[in-house]
Design a protein around this nucleic acid. Sequence first.
DNA 1: GTCAAACTACGAAGACCTTCGTACAAAGGA
DNA 2: TCCTTTGTACGAAGGTCTTCGTAGTTTGAC
Lengths: 109, 109
Amino acid sequence: MTPRTLDHPDRSEIRLEDVLHALSDPARLQVVCYLAGSGESSCSAIDLAVSKSTSTHHFRVLREAGVIRQVYRGTAKMSSLRREDLDALFPGLLDTVIRAYDTQRAATL
Amino acid sequence: MTPRTLDHPDRSEIRLEDVLHALSDPARLQVVCYLAGSGESSCSAIDLAVSKSTSTHHFRVLREAGVIRQVYRGTAKMSSLRREDLDALFPGLLDTVIRAYDTQRAATL
DNA sequence: GTCAAACTACGAAGACCTTCGTACAAAGGA
DNA sequence: TCCTTTGTACGAAGGTCTTCGTAGTTTGAC
C-alpha cells in the first residue's frame, strides 16, 4: 500500500509573497500562532470558527506556501511550523509576525 | 477651493492582516522597498511593470492598509512609508520584510 | 467485519482582486 | 488661455479566494 503523502515546496521554492499572503488571513494567522506555541498539533486541536472543509483549505494554503509541514499519523494529520526553513530564508519574519499578532490581540481585548 | 485630500486609517485602525495582505503582492512589495530606500517619492518615480490605473490601484491598497501616506504636491502625489506607525504597532515587521525581499531578490538573480 | 474519528475531494456560490482602457480633472508653465 | 504632466474615476473582464455542504477515504479500535 502507498502511504498518503502531501506535497511540500522545498526551501528554495518558498516565496516571500506567498508566505505573506498565507499569513494575511485571520484564521491562518491563528493557526500559525497556535503552532508556534504548541509544536506539532493535529488540525482539530485548533479551534477555528469555520467549517471543517474550510479548515482543510486554510491548512493547505499554509502548506503550499511553505509555512507548515504536514504528516499523517494514524487518522490524524499533524501540522508543524517550518521554522528552520523560514528562519533561514527570512530571518525574524515569523517571530515578528507572531509578536505583532499577540500585540494586536492584546490591544483589541 | 478645497484641497484634494486622501483618507488614511489612523494608527489604531491599522490591522496586521491588512498590512500583510498589502505586502503580499510583488508590485506593492517593490513600492514599499523602493520607498524604504528613497523616502518620499512620486508615484511615477517607481517603475512598475503595470499600467497607470493598475499602479493607482496598488498605491491605494497600500494607503488604505496604513502602509504608506500620500499627499498631493502640485500635479504630483507623493508617497512615503508610515514607518513610525508601523514600527510602533508591529516592531521590526517592516525591516524584516524589506530584508527578506532583498534577500530573495539577490537569491533569484 | 464494523464502526467511529479525522480528514479530503468535489462542486458551487459569492465575494474580492488584478488588470486594463478610456475619459476626465487639477496644477503649473509657456 | 492652452498644453503638458500627473494622477483619478469608472466600468468591465477574467481570475482567484473563501466558504460551505455532501459524499467519500483512511486508519485504528472493538
